[in-house]
Design a protein around this nucleic acid. Structure first.
Length: 376
DNA sequence: CACAAAGAACCTGTTCAGCA
DNA sequence: TGCTGAACAGGTTCTTTGTG
Protein backbone atom coordinates (compact mmCIF):
# COMPACT_ATOMS: atom_id res chain seq x y z
CA UNK A 1 0.00 0.00 0.00
CA UNK A 2 1.45 3.35 -1.05
CA UNK A 3 -0.35 6.69 -1.60
CA UNK A 4 0.58 10.41 -1.44
CA UNK A 5 -0.08 12.17 1.80
CA UNK A 6 -2.45 14.73 0.21
CA UNK A 7 -4.67 12.19 -1.37
CA UNK A 8 -6.07 10.08 1.32
CA UNK A 9 -7.58 6.91 0.08
CA UNK A 10 -11.26 6.78 -0.41
CA UNK A 11 -12.53 5.09 2.58
CA UNK A 12 -16.36 4.78 2.67
CA UNK A 13 -17.01 5.08 6.33
CA UNK A 14 -14.26 5.12 8.90
CA UNK A 15 -15.08 3.61 12.11
CA UNK A 16 -14.21 5.43 15.25
CA UNK A 17 -10.49 5.29 15.86
CA UNK A 18 -9.41 3.45 18.90
CA UNK A 19 -6.96 5.07 21.30
CA UNK A 20 -3.39 3.84 21.42
CA UNK A 21 -4.09 2.24 24.71
CA UNK A 22 -7.02 0.36 23.26
CA UNK A 23 -4.88 -0.72 20.31
CA UNK A 24 -2.19 -2.12 22.48
CA UNK A 25 -3.21 -5.75 22.53
CA UNK A 26 0.20 -7.27 21.70
CA UNK A 27 -0.14 -6.77 17.97
CA UNK A 28 2.66 -5.33 15.87
CA UNK A 29 1.93 -2.51 13.45
CA UNK A 30 4.27 -2.02 10.48
CA UNK A 31 4.81 1.23 8.53
CA UNK A 32 3.52 0.93 4.99
CA UNK A 33 4.43 4.27 3.49
CA UNK A 34 7.65 5.17 1.64
CA UNK A 35 7.91 8.86 0.71
CA UNK A 36 8.74 9.58 -2.94
CA UNK A 37 8.22 6.03 -4.08
CA UNK A 38 6.26 5.59 -7.33
CA UNK A 39 2.85 4.11 -7.44
CA UNK A 40 2.88 0.39 -7.49
CA UNK A 41 0.36 -2.11 -8.52
CA UNK A 42 1.34 -4.39 -5.75
CA UNK A 43 -1.36 -6.16 -4.03
CA UNK A 44 -2.42 -4.32 -0.96
CA UNK A 45 -0.71 -5.57 2.10
CA UNK A 46 -2.79 -5.67 5.11
CA UNK A 47 -1.77 -5.66 8.71
CA UNK A 48 -1.63 -9.14 10.00
CA UNK A 49 -1.70 -10.42 13.52
CA UNK A 50 1.62 -12.17 14.45
CA UNK A 51 1.62 -14.59 17.32
CA UNK A 52 4.68 -15.06 19.55
CA UNK A 53 5.17 -18.58 18.07
CA UNK A 54 5.28 -17.21 14.55
CA UNK A 55 7.70 -14.52 15.65
CA UNK A 56 9.98 -17.11 17.22
CA UNK A 57 9.97 -19.23 14.07
CA UNK A 58 10.71 -16.21 11.90
CA UNK A 59 13.52 -15.14 14.25
CA UNK A 60 15.09 -18.63 14.14
CA UNK A 61 14.94 -18.70 10.35
CA UNK A 62 16.58 -15.30 10.23
CA UNK A 63 19.36 -16.41 12.59
CA UNK A 64 19.97 -19.53 10.49
CA UNK A 65 20.28 -17.51 7.34
CA UNK A 66 22.60 -15.07 9.11
CA UNK A 67 24.88 -17.91 10.26
CA UNK A 68 24.97 -19.39 6.78
CA UNK A 69 25.93 -16.03 5.39
CA UNK A 70 28.73 -15.63 7.97
CA UNK A 71 30.01 -19.14 7.24
CA UNK A 72 30.10 -18.41 3.54
CA UNK A 73 32.03 -15.22 4.19
CA UNK A 74 34.48 -17.09 6.42
CA UNK A 75 35.04 -19.78 3.78
CA UNK A 76 35.65 -17.16 1.20
CA UNK A 77 38.14 -15.37 3.41
CA UNK A 78 39.99 -18.65 4.13
CA UNK A 79 40.12 -19.57 0.48
CA UNK A 80 41.49 -16.13 -0.27
CA UNK A 81 44.11 -16.52 2.48
CA UNK A 82 45.14 -19.96 1.15
CA UNK A 83 45.46 -18.53 -2.30
CA UNK A 84 47.47 -15.62 -0.98
CA UNK A 85 49.84 -17.97 0.91
CA UNK A 86 50.18 -20.27 -2.07
CA UNK A 87 50.96 -17.35 -4.31
CA UNK A 88 53.47 -16.10 -1.76
CA UNK A 89 55.17 -19.49 -1.44
CA UNK A 90 55.24 -19.90 -5.18
CA UNK A 91 56.80 -16.51 -5.64
CA UNK A 92 59.38 -17.22 -2.89
CA UNK A 93 60.27 -20.56 -4.49
CA UNK A 94 60.63 -18.88 -7.82
CA UNK A 95 62.78 -16.22 -6.21
CA UNK A 96 64.92 -18.90 -4.53
CA UNK A 97 65.48 -20.64 -7.86
CA UNK A 98 66.18 -17.39 -9.58
CA UNK A 99 68.72 -16.56 -6.87
CA UNK A 100 70.69 -19.64 -7.92
CA UNK A 101 69.78 -22.15 -5.20
CA UNK A 102 69.27 -25.69 -6.50
CA UNK A 103 66.69 -26.54 -3.84
CA UNK A 104 64.83 -25.06 -0.93
CA UNK A 105 67.08 -27.02 1.42
CA UNK A 106 70.14 -25.37 -0.11
CA UNK A 107 68.54 -22.02 0.64
CA UNK A 108 67.71 -23.05 4.24
CA UNK A 109 71.25 -24.27 4.71
CA UNK A 110 72.66 -21.01 3.39
CA UNK A 111 70.24 -19.02 5.54
CA UNK A 112 71.39 -20.71 8.75
CA UNK A 113 75.07 -20.63 7.80
CA UNK A 114 75.01 -17.01 6.71
CA UNK A 115 77.76 -14.99 8.38
CA UNK A 116 76.22 -11.61 7.69
CA UNK A 117 75.54 -10.03 11.06
CA UNK A 118 72.13 -8.61 10.23
CA UNK A 119 70.84 -11.74 8.51
CA UNK A 120 72.27 -14.01 11.19
CA UNK A 121 70.74 -11.93 13.93
CA UNK A 122 67.39 -11.89 12.16
CA UNK A 123 67.45 -15.65 11.76
CA UNK A 124 68.32 -16.16 15.41
CA UNK A 125 65.81 -13.72 16.86
CA UNK A 126 62.83 -14.06 14.59
CA UNK A 127 63.30 -17.50 13.17
CA UNK A 128 64.78 -19.73 15.92
CA UNK A 129 64.25 -18.08 19.31
CA UNK A 130 60.51 -17.64 18.88
CA UNK A 131 59.55 -20.57 16.72
CA UNK A 132 62.17 -23.29 17.12
CA UNK A 133 59.80 -25.76 18.87
CA UNK A 134 57.09 -25.07 16.28
CA UNK A 135 59.55 -25.73 13.48
CA UNK A 136 60.59 -29.03 15.02
CA UNK A 137 56.93 -29.93 15.46
CA UNK A 138 56.31 -29.19 11.78
CA UNK A 139 59.14 -31.52 10.77
CA UNK A 140 57.91 -34.21 13.20
CA UNK A 141 54.37 -33.94 11.80
CA UNK A 142 55.62 -34.32 8.23
CA UNK A 143 58.24 -37.05 8.88
CA UNK A 144 57.62 -38.65 12.32
CA UNK A 145 60.12 -41.51 12.01
CA UNK A 146 62.92 -39.26 10.75
CA UNK A 147 62.22 -36.74 13.51
CA UNK A 148 62.17 -39.45 16.18
CA UNK A 149 65.42 -40.94 14.92
CA UNK A 150 67.09 -37.54 14.90
CA UNK A 151 65.81 -36.74 18.41
CA UNK A 152 66.98 -40.12 19.70
CA UNK A 153 70.46 -39.73 18.19
CA UNK A 154 70.81 -36.26 19.58
CA UNK A 155 69.58 -37.31 23.01
CA UNK A 156 72.03 -40.21 23.11
CA UNK A 157 74.90 -37.82 22.39
CA UNK A 158 73.74 -35.60 25.24
CA UNK A 159 73.47 -38.59 27.58
CA UNK A 160 76.97 -39.71 26.60
CA UNK A 161 78.40 -36.32 27.54
CA UNK A 162 76.47 -36.15 30.78
CA UNK A 163 77.56 -39.67 31.70
CA UNK A 164 81.19 -38.63 31.33
CA UNK A 165 80.58 -35.55 33.50
CA UNK A 166 78.88 -37.72 36.10
CA UNK A 167 81.94 -39.95 36.22
CA UNK A 168 84.16 -36.94 36.90
CA UNK A 169 81.83 -35.92 39.70
CA UNK A 170 81.96 -39.32 41.40
CA UNK A 171 85.69 -40.04 41.15
CA UNK A 172 87.21 -39.31 44.58
CA UNK A 173 90.09 -36.83 44.47
CA UNK A 174 93.50 -38.44 44.23
CA UNK A 175 94.86 -39.32 47.67
CA UNK A 176 91.69 -38.32 49.48
CA UNK A 177 91.11 -39.98 52.84
CA UNK A 178 88.39 -42.58 53.21
CA UNK A 179 87.10 -40.76 56.27
CA UNK A 180 86.72 -37.60 54.18
CA UNK A 181 84.74 -39.51 51.58
CA UNK A 182 82.45 -40.79 54.33
CA UNK A 183 82.07 -37.35 55.90
CA UNK A 184 81.28 -35.64 52.61
CA UNK A 185 78.82 -38.26 51.44
CA UNK A 186 75.31 -36.83 51.23
CA UNK A 187 72.52 -38.00 48.95
CA UNK A 188 70.79 -34.58 48.60
CA UNK A 189 74.12 -32.94 47.73
CA UNK A 190 74.96 -35.75 45.35
CA UNK A 191 71.61 -35.32 43.58
CA UNK A 192 72.02 -31.53 43.40
CA UNK A 193 75.47 -31.84 41.87
CA UNK A 194 74.28 -34.57 39.51
CA UNK A 195 71.43 -32.33 38.32
CA UNK A 196 73.98 -29.62 37.56
CA UNK A 197 76.31 -31.78 35.49
CA UNK A 198 73.78 -34.24 34.04
CA UNK A 199 70.34 -32.58 33.93
CA UNK A 200 68.92 -34.67 31.08
CA UNK A 201 70.13 -37.95 32.54
CA UNK A 202 68.61 -37.10 35.92
CA UNK A 203 65.40 -35.98 34.28
CA UNK A 204 65.20 -39.13 32.20
CA UNK A 205 65.72 -41.45 35.19
CA UNK A 206 63.38 -39.42 37.39
CA UNK A 207 60.67 -39.59 34.75
CA UNK A 208 61.19 -43.31 34.22
CA UNK A 209 60.87 -44.02 37.94
CA UNK A 210 58.06 -41.48 38.46
CA UNK A 211 60.11 -39.47 40.94
CA UNK A 212 59.72 -35.79 41.58
CA UNK A 213 61.51 -33.74 44.20
CA UNK A 214 58.31 -32.25 45.58
CA UNK A 215 56.47 -35.57 45.45
CA UNK A 216 54.86 -37.09 48.50
CA UNK A 217 57.02 -39.27 50.71
CA UNK A 218 56.36 -42.90 49.95
CA UNK A 219 57.55 -46.14 51.46
CA UNK A 220 60.33 -46.28 48.91
CA UNK A 221 63.08 -43.68 49.11
CA UNK A 222 63.21 -42.70 45.48
CA UNK A 223 65.92 -40.12 46.07
CA UNK A 224 68.19 -42.88 47.38
CA UNK A 225 67.24 -45.07 44.44
CA UNK A 226 68.01 -42.28 41.99
CA UNK A 227 71.37 -41.62 43.64
CA UNK A 228 72.14 -45.35 43.55
CA UNK A 229 71.26 -45.59 39.87
CA UNK A 230 73.37 -42.58 38.94
CA UNK A 231 76.30 -43.93 40.96
CA UNK A 232 75.98 -47.37 39.41
CA UNK A 233 75.91 -45.85 35.93
CA UNK A 234 79.05 -43.86 36.68
CA UNK A 235 80.77 -46.96 38.08
CA UNK A 236 80.01 -49.02 35.00
CA UNK A 237 81.62 -46.31 32.87
CA UNK A 238 84.66 -45.96 35.10
CA UNK A 239 85.62 -48.15 38.05
CA UNK A 240 87.20 -45.21 39.79
CA UNK A 241 83.89 -43.39 40.11
CA UNK A 242 83.46 -45.07 43.47
CA UNK A 243 82.28 -42.44 45.95
CA UNK A 244 78.95 -44.17 46.50
CA UNK A 245 80.45 -47.66 46.33
CA UNK A 246 83.04 -46.92 49.05
CA UNK A 247 80.26 -45.97 51.45
CA UNK A 248 78.20 -48.96 50.38
CA UNK A 249 80.94 -51.54 50.79
CA UNK A 250 81.93 -50.29 54.26
CA UNK A 251 78.29 -50.41 55.31
CA UNK A 252 77.95 -53.96 54.01
CA UNK A 253 81.12 -55.03 55.82
CA UNK A 254 79.89 -53.47 59.06
CA UNK A 255 76.63 -55.41 58.67
CA UNK A 256 78.54 -58.67 58.31
CA UNK A 257 77.49 -59.23 54.70
CA UNK A 258 78.99 -62.45 53.27
CA UNK A 259 81.42 -62.36 50.40
CA UNK A 260 78.81 -63.74 48.00
CA UNK A 261 76.58 -60.72 48.68
CA UNK A 262 79.54 -58.42 48.05
CA UNK A 263 80.03 -60.17 44.74
CA UNK A 264 76.41 -59.71 43.66
CA UNK A 265 76.26 -56.04 44.66
CA UNK A 266 79.68 -55.39 43.16
CA UNK A 267 78.55 -56.83 39.82
CA UNK A 268 75.41 -54.71 40.01
CA UNK A 269 77.56 -51.60 40.56
CA UNK A 270 76.29 -50.81 44.06
CA UNK A 271 79.41 -51.66 46.07
CA UNK A 272 83.13 -52.30 45.73
CA UNK A 273 84.44 -55.87 45.86
CA UNK A 274 85.11 -57.70 49.09
CA UNK A 275 88.86 -57.24 48.77
CA UNK A 276 88.48 -53.53 48.15
CA UNK A 277 86.21 -53.23 51.17
CA UNK A 278 88.93 -54.70 53.40
CA UNK A 279 91.53 -52.37 51.89
CA UNK A 280 89.28 -49.36 52.53
CA UNK A 281 88.62 -50.49 56.08
CA UNK A 282 92.34 -50.80 56.78
CA UNK A 283 92.96 -47.41 55.24
CA UNK A 284 90.21 -45.93 57.40
CA UNK A 285 91.73 -47.57 60.48
CA UNK A 286 95.16 -46.05 59.75
CA UNK A 287 93.63 -42.61 59.21
CA UNK A 288 91.70 -42.66 62.50
CA UNK A 289 94.70 -43.95 64.44
CA UNK A 290 96.79 -41.08 63.10
CA UNK A 291 94.00 -38.66 64.02
CA UNK A 292 93.91 -40.04 67.56
CA UNK A 293 97.66 -39.58 67.87
CA UNK A 294 97.34 -35.98 66.74
CA UNK A 295 94.56 -35.30 69.23
CA UNK A 296 96.49 -36.83 72.13
CA UNK A 297 99.51 -34.69 71.27
CA UNK A 298 97.56 -31.44 71.16
CA UNK A 299 94.83 -31.52 73.80
CA UNK A 300 93.84 -33.28 77.04
CA UNK A 301 91.85 -36.46 76.55
CA UNK A 302 89.96 -38.91 78.70
CA UNK A 303 90.45 -42.63 78.27
CA UNK A 304 87.72 -45.17 78.92
CA UNK A 305 88.81 -48.80 78.89
CA UNK A 306 87.14 -52.09 79.45
CA UNK A 307 88.04 -55.74 79.30
CA UNK A 308 86.90 -57.80 76.33
CA UNK A 309 86.46 -61.56 76.38
CA UNK A 310 85.30 -63.40 73.28
CA UNK A 311 84.82 -67.17 73.18
CA UNK A 312 85.70 -68.86 69.89
CA UNK A 313 83.94 -72.22 69.87
CA UNK A 314 84.98 -75.04 67.57
CA UNK A 315 82.35 -77.55 66.61
CA UNK A 316 84.74 -80.46 66.42
CA UNK A 317 87.86 -80.05 68.54
CA UNK A 318 91.07 -81.46 67.14
CA UNK A 319 94.74 -81.25 68.00
CA UNK A 320 95.12 -78.34 65.60
CA UNK A 321 91.72 -76.78 66.18
CA UNK A 322 90.46 -76.23 69.72
CA UNK A 323 88.14 -73.91 71.55
CA UNK A 324 89.90 -70.77 72.66
CA UNK A 325 89.11 -67.62 74.55
CA UNK A 326 90.47 -64.28 73.40
CA UNK A 327 90.98 -61.68 76.12
CA UNK A 328 91.86 -58.07 75.50
CA UNK A 329 91.17 -54.51 76.44
CA UNK A 330 89.16 -51.99 74.49
CA UNK A 331 89.92 -48.28 74.73
CA UNK A 332 87.82 -45.23 73.87
CA UNK A 333 89.48 -41.84 73.58
CA UNK A 334 87.36 -38.82 74.48
CA UNK A 335 88.87 -35.41 73.70
CA UNK A 336 88.29 -32.83 76.44
CA UNK A 337 87.39 -29.50 74.92
CA UNK A 338 88.00 -26.19 76.73
CA UNK A 339 90.40 -27.90 79.14
CA UNK A 340 93.86 -26.36 79.15
CA UNK A 341 96.86 -28.69 79.02
CA UNK A 342 98.33 -29.43 82.50
CA UNK A 343 95.25 -27.91 84.15
CA UNK A 344 94.16 -31.33 85.37
CA UNK A 345 95.79 -32.71 88.56
CA UNK A 346 97.24 -36.18 88.43
CA UNK A 347 95.10 -37.12 91.44
CA UNK A 348 91.51 -36.04 91.43
CA UNK A 349 90.86 -37.33 94.98
CA UNK A 350 90.15 -34.72 97.66
CA UNK A 351 92.60 -34.67 100.63
CA UNK A 352 91.53 -36.95 103.57
CA UNK A 353 90.42 -34.95 106.63
CA UNK A 354 89.44 -37.83 108.97
CA UNK A 355 91.04 -41.09 110.00
CA UNK A 356 89.89 -44.54 111.10
CA UNK A 357 89.12 -45.10 114.79
CA UNK A 358 91.96 -47.11 116.45
CA UNK A 359 91.22 -49.41 119.42
CA UNK A 360 93.86 -49.97 122.07
CA UNK A 361 93.58 -53.63 123.24
CA UNK A 362 95.66 -56.83 123.53
CA UNK A 363 94.16 -59.64 121.42
CA UNK A 364 96.16 -62.28 123.39
CA UNK A 365 94.50 -61.30 126.67
CA UNK A 366 91.22 -59.68 125.83
CA UNK A 367 89.86 -62.11 123.22
CA UNK A 368 87.80 -65.12 124.40
CA UNK A 369 88.23 -68.04 124.65
CA UNK A 370 91.86 -67.73 125.72
CA UNK A 371 94.52 -70.19 124.64
CA UNK A 372 94.39 -71.81 128.07
CA UNK A 373 90.65 -72.24 127.93
CA UNK A 374 90.94 -73.86 124.49
CA UNK A 375 93.56 -76.35 125.70
CA UNK A 376 91.39 -77.26 128.66
C1' DC B 1 65.93 -94.65 62.91
C1' DA B 2 70.08 -92.81 65.03
C1' DC B 3 74.65 -92.05 64.62
C1' DA B 4 79.30 -91.54 62.64
C1' DA B 5 82.41 -90.74 58.90
C1' DA B 6 83.64 -88.70 54.61
C1' DG B 7 83.65 -85.27 51.56
C1' DA B 8 81.53 -81.50 49.12
C1' DA B 9 80.52 -76.84 49.62
C1' DC B 10 81.07 -72.92 51.75
C1' DC B 11 83.30 -69.24 54.70
C1' DT B 12 87.06 -65.35 55.56
C1' DG B 13 91.40 -63.11 54.80
C1' DT B 14 95.40 -62.61 51.89
C1' DT B 15 98.26 -62.18 47.73
C1' DC B 16 99.14 -61.06 43.11
C1' DA B 17 98.53 -60.43 38.13
C1' DG B 18 95.94 -57.87 34.99
C1' DC B 19 92.99 -54.13 33.41
C1' DA B 20 91.51 -49.26 32.62
C1' DT C 1 96.68 -45.56 40.78
C1' DG C 2 92.54 -47.90 41.95
C1' DC C 3 90.02 -51.77 41.27
C1' DT C 4 88.83 -56.74 40.17
C1' DG C 5 89.05 -61.65 40.07
C1' DA C 6 91.42 -65.89 40.68
C1' DA C 7 93.95 -68.72 43.63
C1' DC C 8 95.31 -70.15 47.98
C1' DA C 9 95.26 -71.48 53.07
C1' DG C 10 92.84 -72.79 56.88
C1' DG C 11 88.77 -73.29 58.77
C1' DT C 12 83.36 -74.53 59.39
C1' DT C 13 78.92 -76.39 57.94
C1' DC C 14 75.93 -79.15 55.26
C1' DT C 15 74.86 -83.37 52.75
C1' DT C 16 75.42 -88.02 51.63
C1' DT C 17 76.38 -92.64 52.73
C1' DG C 18 77.25 -96.68 55.49
C1' DT C 19 76.40 -99.28 59.65
C1' DG C 20 74.23 -101.24 63.71
Amino acid sequence: MNFPPNEPPAVPARSKRKSAKENDNGLQIQAMYTPGAPHTTKKRRVLATITPEEQAIASAAYQEKLLERLEDEKRMREAAEVKRVEDGVRSVLTAVQEAGFTSLFEFQKALHACKNQQISSQVTRNYLDDHAPSMLELVAARQPSAADHWASERFLKIIQKEGARLVSLLIPESGIEVSTVLQRYSIPELLDEARDVAPHLCEMLSTAMAYSEDGLETRKHKDVMLASLLSAIAQTRNERASTFQIVGCLYLYACGAPRSLFEVLNHAGFALSYGSAILKLKQLSRERLELMRDIVRTQPCMLVYDNMNIAFRVNEQRETSKDHFDNGTTATLIPLFRVKPSSLHLSLLTPRLTRRITYNYDPGKELLPSRQQIEE
